[in-house]
Amino acid sequence: MKQYAYYPGCSLESLATSYNLSTLEVAQTLGVDLKEIKDWNCCGATAYFPVDELLAHTLVARNLALAEKDGLSDFVAPCSACYKNAYFTNAYLKKDPDLAEHINYALEADNLHVNGTMKVRHLIEVFIEDVGLDEIEKKITHPLKGLRVAPYYGCQLLRPRKDQENVENPQFFESLLSALGAEPVDYPSKTRCCGGSLIITNRKAALDMVHILLQDAVNRKADVIATTCPMCNVNLEVYQGQVNREFGTQFAIPVMYFTQLMGVALGIKPEKLGIGKELVSGEPVLAFAY
């Protein structure tokens, strides 16, 4: 069985524990062997690039180097920001020997060396491409029949990748949801930004952006929003209350990780998927499966 270097990222240890739980459960059920990288560090998310670009890349490179040391070929991140950072640092390392030299000089202090040979993947990619939708469909025991899910891609899962890829109107998330038996909702803001870290630095702007997303999903009669990133999830879910206060709205739409929905459809017990930890209850979703 193929083993993947698993980089959970900081959020999955705290705010997004349910993402981590559900990821590990679903991976096990689908026979995906995720081996957590030993002693990984924070990748810097979006907050590190404003300070020092080289250091930001070095932080990311340390994790890549640790994974390379384990002799694994695929680096898997469930967080879109971690994924984007790893994807690009890895790509730059390959095409820019100067950058690689700088970084390796720093890594030397930690007895590490990075080559940029990893294939950087997002978790959803591994499930869709490596496991395959057919295989997933076969293992579904509790199809989410009639559940209208708004797939929220967010930003960094897709962008700034653009080489020949459809970054404006992707469809893979929809296909996954269909495989789970759910009904993917076509809504216009699926790749629109949730505000990301602006929730800390520019609360008003971020709440405005979250408001638009929630509005679009609710207008298209979604029962739940599915996310692929802890940052998106927190913004859409944890800050729903603040959006309601700010805009006088009454949103109460559950926001769940795609792995939680997969877990439910695969018949895994909700507690094991971290369901119950959310501030906007995910209970209504369960009704569709059981």
């Binding site: 809504y187 216009p188 803001s189 509005q215 679009d216």
Partner: peptide, 10 residues
Amino acid sequence: KVAEITDAAR
């Protein structure tokens, strides 16, 4: 240059 065209009213 037009950035996007949508039918999602705000």
